[in-house]
Simulated scan of single mutants.
Amino acid sequence: MLQLPKPHHHPPKTLVSAAESYEYCRQITAHYSKTFYMGTLLMPPEKRQAIWAIYEWCRRTDELVDGPKAYTTTPETLDAWENHLEAVFAGHPQEDADVALVDTLERFPIPIDPFRDMIAGQRMDLYRSRYDTFEELKLYCYRVAGTVGLMTSPVLGFSEPPSASPWQLANHSETLEAAVDLGIANQLTNILRDVGEDTGRGRIYLPLADLHRFDYTEKDLFNSVVDERWRSLMKFEIRRAREFYRRAEDGIRDLNPDARWPVWSALMLYQGILNVIEQNDYDVFNKRAFVPKGRKLLYLPVAWLRAQVL
């Protein structure tokens, strides 16, 4: 009788502990988003760890289309990543970094939909390199950044009640809208800061209708032209971003008290990038806009005061 070889079963991969996974997520957050990381340090330990776990997942997702191996990413890659996500939400970590996120999902009532929406935003980057109108861009900004507000709000918590189940989140719809607005404001800030880098990759995130409005062309953009047309365009875009920050401020008072100072700090620190763009005379092609560490520290007491009285 023919003897078939016994199938070879690979032992399941041994993953790191939750503590080790959280530490890895902390290091990733600290390295890639110093401003955001500073805000998380103002949170209670359990909340800051959860935010690090969420940030690390978002980072891995973004790397699929913007990282060094982005040229290998296909729609099927993102399909597989969504399957990976569903396994994590089912409590089955696939990689070391997933361990922290699985633990976070057990501690906080975080819905899966914003994570799926973020993957949908990465799909947009696969086939789009231009946006005709701001409404089109706004959808993209929601998917890749506004979703972060929906992911993190259940961790930050609400003033009444201190925590909420997924079906109770609708009771905080205005707060969640403000959280989305903060994510959109941050993404618009990223777009304005990174215009030069994005054109280097053949991408234009500024709405083409806005370029047309100020008689500024794609050719001008790829040639890094800084003139009065460009300055007028940038002033217009910065005003729009600041309006989203203003809307976001309205929702902070409804967050759990221990989350208000960190969120005010993160908002002010990131909005500070717009101030630096202005100080650099809107030259985002040759000057990287960032808030110096000393100035970041000056924001913290102001943010604390706003968290107490606003």
Rank of each mutant, 00 (worst) to 15 (best):
R242D: 06
D132E: 15
E228M: 13
R247W: 05
E56N: 15
I277F: 02
C141M: 09
R213S: 10
R231F: 05
V284R: 04
E56L: 14
L139I: 14
P68N: 14
K6I: 12
D132S: 14
N83M: 12
Y22L: 05
R260S: 03
I273E: 08
L64S: 02
A170I: 15
E278D: 02
T104F: 10
Y127R: 15
V302H: 02
L192K: 04
L221P: 03
V284M: 09
R247Y: 07
R143W: 09
L139T: 13
E46F: 08
F236K: 13
A90Q: 14
V102I: 12
L297C: 11
P207H: 08
Y24I: 09
D227S: 09
L255E: 00
L182G: 02
P109Q: 13
R231P: 01
E174F: 07
Y140R: 00
W57D: 00
I277M: 06
A164N: 05
E237W: 12
I28N: 00
Y22E: 02
A248S: 11
Y299K: 08
N171Y: 15
R116C: 10
L269F: 05
L206C: 07
G196Q: 04
T40D: 03
A100M: 05
Q308V: 07
Q122V: 02
F134H: 06
Y37S: 11
D62I: 08
F89I: 07
Y131L: 09
E228K: 13
W52Y: 14
L42F: 08
W261A: 10
